[in-house]
Each structure stands twice: as structure tokens, then as C-alpha cells.
């Protein structure tokens, strides 16, 4: 069954939300990491509700509302999200309360909002949407799992439009901790990559409409831990199986870095097509593939200023994180 992305919305360090067209300019690095350029949430969320919401929830709810509006939908047939680290602000808040107050007299709000499915639950609450509502949390393939679940549901009966999103937030504290470990890939020098955050939402549908942005041509996940030969051999095999038509792509959007073996492997496989390193614009975070997908749809739609070359028609998205898993997504203009 053919699937289509019929709407997309992102809140990201690139400041993608309220502008008609976006410009590929690297965001401000002053903090040492990228933060989302947040819109005026009062346009999409009730002021009373906003006060209690963390950035995680605000980005997710606002992104979803905008995405549904763009698709002209009141309610999706399912809400599926992915997040690597979940609601960090509320989690850290409750941990701190627990430490500082010696486990007594704790305010429950942060705890209530700390579960990874808070965003998908809040979206359902706001929309009054009683349909399927699930959240995946598997490090750098959290969004990929969500997308795969949506794809599988759309192959079944009775589903038409599914809201799928990826969300991760960064806080000064979480950045301070994570950046001291190899949980996050960081690069300095000629092609610096720093931590980032964002939320990107999509309507995935089995119906093409006048709003369709692109066709979804599949997702594949590679588990590098399973490699029984060298990385390049096993990744190569995986790539050839997933993309037998690799030379047809006219843009590769990758989360890998020029110092990675896979970067050059991909470049070779796709016939040295243009390569866009998307983490230059959103930073490194678990669900950054959702940003890459949004960027691909914007490029296909010709809504990006300063993008190199002509509008691409067939885009291959590759991502990886600190773990062994890589993902490939294919989208085609239609």
C-alpha cells in the first residue's frame, strides 16, 4: 500500500515553525548546544494550560496542533510518538524535589508529567481523541519505531490518517551530564556537531490528497551490533537490500559525520549525490530523524531558501546515534 506524508510541522533550532519559508543557516551556538526557537505558544495552546507545561509538552502539543491544521484534520486515527529521553525537565524537577525535601511533601505535578507518554496523552486530551495512543522510547530509533508502527497500522483496515512525531528536549543539566559521556556524539573542528532538541510531527496517510507533501517509500533499521562481518560489509549489504535503486536519489540527508566510515560509504552508494548534514541545523538528539524528515519534505516542496541546487525529487535520509542502530528513510515527490 502506498503511503503519503500529508502534513508536517516542526519546532527546531532552525526556527522552522512560523516562517513560510526557511533558510538553511546554522543556529546560534552561544549556549554550547542548540535550543529550539520556540513560537508564541499562545497561538496554539490555552494560556491556563501553558503554565504547567514543560518545553517538551509545549513543543509536542503545539507541533501536533499545527500539523493537524495543515492537514485539515480534526482528529487523527492514532497518535504515535517517539522520544529518547522523555520529559527531562519534569523528571529532573521531581528528582531534585525528592533529594531536597528528603522524600516528603512533594508536589505531584512534575511526577504526573514525567512519563514518556505525557505528550501523546496531552495531545489526546486537547483533541478529545480516543484512538490509539502510544509512545516508543528506544534511544536513537524511537521515532523510527513510531513511524514503523504507523506504517503497519495503515496496512490494516480502518485507518487513514496517523499523527506521528518525534520529541526530545534538552536542559542545561541534562546537557551537562550527557556531554560528559559518549551517549551523545559530538564533533569539533571543521564540521562541528553539538547537542540539540526539537519536535517534528507528521500526518502519515494511505490516501493522497491535494495537501500531500511526498510519498513515503519505506523505512529500514540496521542493527550494527548484529554485524557478523566488518561494519562496512554488513552495512553495505543492508543498504543494497533496502535501497536497490540507490543511484536514483538526488539528495542524501544524513546524520553521520565526515569522520564516520558510513558517511563515505553512503556517498559512494548514492553516486556522490549532494549530501546535506542535517545535524548542522538541529544538533544531535535521539529523535533528530524526525527533523531530517521534516527538512526533506520542505526541500521537496521548495520551501527552503539557500538550499543547494534544484528541488530534489527523491530523498534518502540516513541517521545514526551513539548506539549500533542506523536508519534509512525514503521519500519521493509526487
Amino acid at each position: 500500500m502506498e503511503l503519503y506524508f500529508n502534513a508536517a510541522s516542526a519546532i527546531s533550532p532552525l526556527g522552522s515553525f512560523e516562517n513560510e519559508s526557511i533558510s538553511l543557516q546554522p543556529p546560534d551556538r552561544a549556549l554550547g548546544y542548540f535550543v529550539s526557537r520556540e513560537p508564541d505558544y499562545r497561538n496554539t495552546i490555552d494560556k491556563k494550560l501553558l503554565r504547567r507545561m514543560s518545553k517538551f509538552i509545549k513543543m509536542a502539543v503545539s507541533g501536533s496542533v499545527d500539523c493537524l491544521a495543515a492537514a485539515g484534520l480534526e482528529q487523527p486515527d492514532a497518535i504515535i510518538t517517539g522520544t529518547g529521553l522523555g520529559c527531562l525537565t519534569d523528571t529532573i524537577d521531581f528528582l531534585q524535589q525528592m533529594n531536597e525535601n528528603a522524600e516528603t511533601l512533594l508536589n505531584p505535578t512534575a511526577f504526573m508529567q514525567s512519563t514518556h507518554n505525557t505528550a501523546s496523552g496531552q495531545i489526546a486530551l486537547l483533541l478529545g481523541c480516543k484512538n490509539l495512543n502510544i509512545t516508543f522510547s528506544q534511544k536513537n530509533i524511537s521515532f523510527e519505531s513510531a513511524l514503523l508502527h504507523a506504517k503497519m497500522m495503515l496496512n490494516g483496515d480502518g485507518y487513514r490518517n496517523i499523527l506521528v512525531g518525534g520529541i526530545d528536549e534538552i536542559t542545561p543539566e541534562s546537557h551537562g551530564l550527557i556531554s560528559q559521556t559518549s551517549c551523545m556524539r559530538k564533533f569539533e573542528g571543521e564540521y562541528p556537531v553539538t547537542a540539540g532538541e526539537g519536535a517534528a510531527f507528521f500526518i502519515l496517510s494511505n490516501r493522497q490528497t491535494e495537501k500531500t507533501l511526498a510519498r513515503f517509500d519505506g523505512i529500514s533499521i540496521f542493527n550494527g551490533a548484529a554485524a557478523d562481518s566488518s561494519f562496512s560489509d554488513s552495512f553495505s549489504r543492508f543498504f543494497d537490500e533496502s535501497c536497490p535503486d540507490a543511484d536514483h536519489f538526488d539528495l542524501l540527508i544524513t546524520g553521520s559525520h565526515p569522520s564516520d566510515e558510513v558517511y563515505h560509504l553512503l556517498s559512494e552508494k548514492t553516486g556522490d549525490q549532494k549530501i546535506l548534514r542535517f545535524k548542522d541545523y538541529c544538533g544531535e538528539y535521539d529523535t533528530s530523524t524526525s527533523f531530517a524528515l521534516w527538512l526533506a519534505l520542505e526541500l521537496i516542496g521548495g520551501r527552503v531558501e539557500g538550499s543547494p541546487g534544484s528541488r530534489p525529487e527523491r530523498v534518502l535520509i540516513h541517521n545514526q546515534g551513539s548506539g549500533p542502530c542506523h536508519s534509512l528513510l525514503k521519500v519521493t515527490a509526487c
Binding site: 516508543f136 528506544q138 551530564l177 560528559q180
Partner: peptide
């Protein structure tokens, strides 16, 4: 603990310890 905090750590660790090499993921809906 920064490595073991993510929900996905358990799935990765089970797979590594028991030699499970397929797709792995984790649901977190409370």
C-alpha cells in the same frame, strides 16, 4: 547511570547479553 537511564537501555542490554540481533524497541506508555 547516564548510560543506563534511557528506557531503551534494557532492551539493548538484553539483546547484547543473550545474543539477540534483530530489531529491538521499547514502549513507554506508563
Amino acid at each position: 547511570y547516564v548510560y543506563t537511564h534511557p528506557c531503551g537501555d534494557t532492551a539493548d542490554s538484553i539483546c547484547a547479553l543473550l545474543g539477540i540481533n534483530g530489531y529491538r524497541t521499547t514502549l513507554s506508555t506508563a
